[in-house]
Write a protein that binds this DNA or RNA. Structure first.
Length: 430
RNA sequence: UCCUCGGUAGCUCAAUGGCAGAGCAUCCGGCUGUUAACCGGAGGGUUGCUGGUUCGAGUCCAGCCCGAGGAGCCA
């Protein structure tokens, strides 16, 4: 009977066949220990010379790492085994031998591994991370779907910058046209919210900044919800609910993976709403108190975010940034018009911003003024201005970077491990 | 674009300006409970590239290439 390693406990005492690959092999003369992986997990297959005969035993002695094979044998509980179970091999069938597999069971540098990312993802640690990524994405979708949000994706090819400031990737678009890869579905999301009420988009996002840090990818995945008839408090409550829900799901279904990653689950168990909130002014005062060289009126830097997030054991919401450091579409606070009704959520343990959003500017005249102030071409935004011409309402939303979120939940050193094929400043292969 | 660090065997790394080394991987041999198994043996080198200093350069100097971390930048 065919079985998967993740279900092996259900097959104790039965004879099963595992189809997979040889992860590692140890031998002790008349007994081989084959570590087999099948994509769902790892298990040790024990092969004794007495059980399989001299010929089969000798063949297994030369089996190389990552050769594809099927092992058949009885599942046995064993306290010495990592997952609690082993297979006593009765038959072993080799499908394809691998020669000189480049990723050996010893240390490798990041450059070497990234050049072989297509093979690196076979490792136990990388499969654990990619499983957590899958769970995070699934939890995000369930969260919005169960709350009446409609998935309504924004285009990847866009005609111009959503904002004038950031660097975009240009792509030729038939004769004489240049399209740009999206850096946000935000503006389209606003139009979709006016059509469908509560929407979200979820897709790849492209940033051509020459950022070279552990928090940056040039291609990453972002989920962006947007709600009509919503204010800043609604946006913050939604962000809290999303993060708490995603963390709870990973704790519920991916305990094994968190153990493989040596991630302390107790720090994640504290992630329940409400999250602490600080205004920009309060954050600035706190940074000054801590003796950081922070200049009031500027955006928070990487170090500032790290120090702030380390003050709390939950994600922290920073609101009311100066309007001047935020995007043109942010609504100013009526009580203090130099501040924006915006929120950034900083992940704990120094992981920095994972969510950015806020309430959108819904007044036509003020929006026109902001477009002028930011030196943006008004004609490119006529469709966006129509949303204010035809039944404008208070609305808002946010964007959450999936890789930064996974990186925090898994407590990784670098976001490059959270996506199957990372795209970075100097890396486009494989 | 700037700052810092790095590039030596397939991999991870040693080597005061004086014979190019170790562990792992590979190959051969040994071992019936190994957990990155262990023990014995063998093969494996254009020291990133170009030039310079020197009796002598992996090592010092200059330029370049590549990478890492950070800064700037970045919803």
């Amino acid at each position: 009977m065919r079985a998967y390693i993740e279900d092996i406990a259900r097959h104790e005492g039965q004879e099963v066949t595992i189809h997979g690959w040889l992860h590692n092999r140890r031998s002790s003369g008349k007994i081989h220990f084959l570590i087999v992986r099948d994509g769902t997990g790892f298990i040790q297959a024990v092969m004794s010379k007495a059980a399989v005969g001299d010929e089969a035993f000798a063949r297994a002695d030369h089996l190389s790492q990552e050769s594809s094979l099927s092992v058949t044998g009885i599942v046995r509980a064993d306290a010495r085994a990592k997952g609690g179970y082993e297979i006593d091999v009765a038959r072993l069938e080799v499908h394809s031998e691998a020669h000189d597999y480049p990723i050996t069971p010893k240390e490798h540098g990041p450059d070497y591994l990234l050049d072989r990312r297509h093979l690196w993802i076979r490792s136990e640690r990388q499969t654990a991370i990619l499983r957590v990524r899958h769970e995070v994405i699934d939890a995000v979708r369930d969260f919005f779907n169960s709350r009446g949000f409609i998935l309504c994706d924004a285009p990847i090819f866009t005609p111009a910058a959503c904002e004038g400031t950031t660097t975009l990737f240009p792509v030729p678009y038939f004769e004489d046209h240049t399209a740009f890869l999206t850096q946000s579905g935000q503006l389209y999301n606003e139009a979709n919210a006016m059509a469908l009420g509560k929407v979200y988009c979820f897709g790849p996002t492209f940033r051509a900044e020459k950022s070279k840090t552990r928090r940056h990818l040039t291609e990453f995945w972002m989920v962006e919800p947007e709600m009509a008839y919503a204010d800043l408090d609604d946006v913050i409550a939604l962000a809290e609910g999303l993060i708490a829900s995603v963390v709870a799901r990973v704790l519920d279904t991916r305990k094994t993976e968190l153990e493989i990653l040596e991630r302390d689950a107790s720090t994640l168990e504290r992630i329940t709403p409400p999250f602490p909130r600080l205004t920009y002014d309060e954050a600035a005062a706190l940074l000054k108190e801590k003796g950081l060289p922070f200049q009031y009126g500027t955006d928070l830097g990487g170090t500032d975010e790290t120090v702030l997030s380390e003050q709390f054991d939950k994600p922290v919401c920073i609101t009311h940034y100066p309007a001047s450091v935020k995007a043109f579409y942010m609504k100013p606070d009526p009580r203090q018009p130099d501040k924006a009704l915006c929120v950034d959520v900083l992940a704990p343990e120094g992981y920095g911003e994972i969510i950015g959003g806020g309430q959108r500017l819904d007044d036509l005249d003020l929006l026109l003024q902001r477009i002028k102030e930011h030196d943006l071409p008004q004609e490119a935004f006529e469709w966006y201005l129509d949303l204010r011409r035809y039944g404008s309402v208070p609305h808002g939303g946010f964007g959450m970077g999936i890789e930064r979120c996974v990186s925090w939940i898994c407590k990784l050193e670098h976001v490059r491990e959270t996506i199957p094929y990372p795209r970075m400043l100097y890396r486009l292969y494989p």
